[in-house]
């Protein structure tokens, strides 16, 4: 356990020493900030009834940075260690492969959460300056954050998996971006007229749909189970990939 925390601290620390992480965090916050400003503007124009928080989590302004930030944050994790050769000192220290994988995921997830923190005041700003109480509700806000966290965890684990496959960061980023897009667009099959089975399956796995649900304030255990179990599965696969050097 101690080894895990030591690794986690070093992983998290590495983000704060890396320019890419700052660039990504700023990019994310700029887009989210714009999204918020845009929604507030719509709101002040008198279009009452726009669910601001759900728009903040469900719109393209959320998805575009999300789909870019996650691959870029994760691409470094294993690829960099392999290219630099630090993987050798890491893996000959008394730590297990599972500890390393979990610590890396925990590190990047922590950074992801920290990246979201500055968006929390948005809701309060809106609440404070709005004379109406109707458009604002904390339920959707909390739901939206839970959704973003769960989805973040799953997609970050995919990014980690891709990073373990290669020593090239660009290859890793493109792979995880492709897999994420596949999931993201696969989810839209649900909205099309297709076979009932396909419609149902894609509904279960549709991140866009999940986010809409969460940011309505509706808490469903199905996406919770889906994201947690998928994350566990991807982490398991990542540990196996890290082990392959021993095969």
């Amino acid at each position: 356990m101690r080894a895990f925390f030591t690794l986690w601290r070093r992983e998290l620390g590495a983000f704060f020493l890396s320019p890419i992480a700052y660039v990504m965090a700023i990019f994310f916050l700029v887009v989210m900030g714009f999204s918020f400003w845009f929604l507030a503007r719509v709101f002040t124009l008198g279009l009452v009834g726009v669910p601001v928080m759900s728009q903040l989590f469900g719109s393209l302004f959320f998805w575009i940075p999300f789909l870019i930030v996650v691959p870029v944050l994760t691409m470094r994790l294993f690829a960099e260690e392999k290219r630099q050769g630090t993987i050798e000192t890491l893996m000959t220290a008394p730590v297990t492969d599972t500890q390393v994988v979990l610590a890396k995921l925990a590190g990047v997830f922590t950074f992801y959460v920290v990246m979201w923190l500055p968006t929390i005041p948005y809701a309060f700003i809106l609440h404070h300056f709005s004379s109406q109480t109707a458009p604002f509700d904390f339920g959707p806000m909390i739901g939206g954050y839970i959704g973003a966290a769960l989805m973040g965890l799953f997609y970050l684990s995919i990014g980690l998996f891709c990073s373990a496959l290669t020593r090239n960061q660009i290859v890793s980023a493109i792979m995880s971006f492709s897999i994420m897009l596949l999931f993201f667009f696969g989810g839209f099959l649900h909205f099309l007229e297709v076979q009932p089975l396909l419609k149902q399956v894609s509904g279960y796995a549709s991140s866009a749909l999940h986010m809409l649900e969460f940011s309505r304030g509706a808490f469903d255990t199905r996406p919770l189970v889906f994201y947690l179990s998928s994350t566990i599965f991807v982490v398991f696969c990542t540990v196996r990939i890290v082990e392959t050097r021993r095969w």
């Binding site: 101690r2 080894a3 030591t6 690794l7 601290r9 070093r10 620390g13 590495a14 020493l17 890396s18 630099q84 050769g85 630090t86 993987i87 050798e88 000192t89 000959t92 220290a93 008394p94 730590v95």
Partner: peptide, 29 residues
């Protein structure tokens, strides 16, 4: 029981010397 210096001596170049050694020491228990 082993102290290992690999061939290309890869280090985390963004860390400070003391910080790195503390991290490695903690990792080694």
């Amino acid at each position: 029981n082993i102290g290992y210096l690999p061939e290309h001596n890869a280090l985390y170049t963004e860390m400070r010397v003391k910080e790195y050694l503390r991290y490695r020491g903690r990792l080694k228990g």
